[in-house]
């Protein structure tokens, strides 16, 4: 099958893109990397009258430090760019891992984080890292800008809070504490060009020996990225011993609501939730401790920098 005919627009700035989207929505579709969209167009799952490519709007691409010490990720940043970005590796390693695992090298050179979030598949690998880091998403339209929590953005399979005339224009990650870090764990049948059977992403912040903050999010075990508050609650305020981490991982199973499909049964996915959450928490903890030690060293050298 070939794609139905459509007109094609390649705006050079955001205002032009928003105006076109506003004028033509809901019959217009914004194209990010196109790795999902082109397949949908060819299968005629989508039949827009206009495709608006976001590829030539420079402000939408790239990663930079925000004024508050957080990270500003442009929605058109490719998976390959995210996976190799030193700022992302330092401040949001789970996001770098998720981006580096997705698809294949060819897909990672085209697919973008904005496309991954807005397509809102339950298996979207970049959504859980963005959620555990407490990101806020900026949605822009001709009328103005609004912000939503990443955690509430995806509402169901393929459904988000984004209105057809809006564009996701920034992913804002808050500053990372000196003793905080994250990790992403996934299982797929093959190592590449596969869809996640189950993923678990963990973020931990330490204060001394105790857990000050914890966040868990699961992929492919519910209609949307599934937060894991039960597991996080086990860890808050306590020392994260291997036993406690195992308890938290086991409690997280309650937060998943997987289904049987050809990639795996619901029972298998529940098993994976426990295993992958334990691994993600363990690695996030090791990273947070390493960052804390690095912070201590910087403090001991106080003021030199």
């Amino acid at each position: 099958m070939r794609a139905a005919r459509f007109d094609y627009l390649e705006p050079r700035d955001l205002d032009e893109a928003l105006a076109a989207l506003s004028e033509h929505s809901p019959d217009a579709v914004a194209a990010a990397g196109g790795t999902d969209l082109l397949r949908d167009l060819r299968q005629q799952k989508r039949r827009p009258s206009l495709v608006i490519s976001l590829a030539r709007i420079p402000v939408l691409s790239g990663v930079r430090s925000a004024d508050d010490g957080g990270l500003l990720v442009g929605p058109m940043t490719t998976m390959a760019a995210l996976a190799s970005d030193p700022l992302v590796a330092d401040l949001a390693p789970a996001l770098a891992e998720a981006a580096g695992h997705m698809g294949s090298p060819q897909v990672r050179n085209r697919a973008t984080i904005g496309g991954n979030l807005c397509n809102a598949r339950p298996c979207a690998d970049t959504a859980p890292p963005v959620i555990v880091h407490g990101a806020r998403l900026q949605l822009s339209s001709k009328e103005g800008i609004r912000e939503v929590e990443a955690e509430s953005f995806i509402t169901g399979p393929g459904a988000t809070l984004r209105e057809p005339h809006e564009l996701l224009t920034a992913i804002q990650l808050p500053p990372s504490g000196v003793a905080a870090s994250s990790a992403f764990e996934t299982l797929t049948n093959r190592k590449a060009v596969e869809i996640t059977i189950t993923s678990a992403t963990a973020w931990l912040e330490l204060e001394g020996d105790l857990v000050k903050g914890a966040s868990i999010c699961l992929g492919s075990v519910g209609p949307r990225p599934m937060p894991g508050p039960s597991g996080a609650a086990v860890l808050l305020g306590v020392e994260p011993t291997p036993e406690r981490i195992a308890q938290a991982a086991s409690a997280t199973v309650l937060d998943a609501s997987p289904i049987d499909d050809f990639r795996g049964s619901a029972d298998y996915r529940r098993h994976l939730v426990e295993v992958l959450t334990r691994r993600a928490l363990t690695r996030a903890l090791a990273r947070a401790r390493r960052r804390a030690r690095g912070g201590d060293i910087a403090e001991a050298q106080g003021g030199v920098a």
Binding site: G34, L38, S53, A55, Q106, N109, R110
Partner: peptide, 13 residues
């Protein structure tokens, strides 16, 4: 210079 799947790129891109 970067490998891509040319079936997933619109020619105009």
């Amino acid at each position: 210079g970067e490998p891509v799947n040319s079936c997933l790129v619109l020619a105009l891109q």
